[in-house]
């Protein structure tokens, strides 16, 4: 599981000293970690690229690292993977016509629900008040 090649090399050189201080995550490490939690490991299918030790997952992480080092943005890297593996590879579905219901449906439902609730409550109170007055 040599996922973090540069770090491994770094440590190999540093083994002569007694203690190795890892000061901070390098910027790319952090980005890789973040991005790979949003990508699907295709072989094992239900874990993320970050959590999988499958060989393909390791290759893809290595590939993503290469792209990051080449200065590609996260969006470009996801696009690169989607081009090859389809939308299935990303756990963050793209926002388009076929996913509009997915992304916006719940919010629209909440708004319509809130309006309906207020109307129903008001109507209900009005009916009950008039009944009260009638009796």
């Amino acid at each position: 599981m040599i996922r973090n090649l540069s770090l491994v090399l770094l440590l190999a050189f540093a083994t002569s000293s007694f203690a190795n201080e890892i000061v901070t995550d390098s910027h790319i490490d952090a980005r890789l970690r973040q991005l790979s939690t949003e990508l699907r490991c295709l072989v094992c299918q239900n874990s993320t690229l970050a959590d999988s030790d499958a060989p393909l997952a390791q290759d893809l992480r290595r590939e993503i690292r290469k792209l990051m080092e080449a200065g590609k943005t996260d969006e470009e890297i996801v696009a690169y993977l989607v081009e090859r593996y389809g939308d299935f590879v990303t756990f963050r579905p793209p926002v388009n016509a076929s996913t509009a219901l997915l992304w916006f449906g719940p919010f629209i439902m909440l708004i319509i629900g809130a309006i309906t609730l207020v109307i129903v409550l008001k109507k209900r109170a009005a009916i009950l008040t008039s009944e009260e007055n009638a009796s």
């Binding site: 295709l42 072989v43 393909l56 290759d59 893809l60 090859r84 593996y85």
Partner: peptide, 13 residues
């Protein structure tokens, strides 16, 4: 050998 062509073709198994 290193699977890079595989990645280009979107091989997952």
């Amino acid at each position: 050998a290193d699977g890079t062509i595989g990645i280009d073709y979107g091989v997952y198994g």
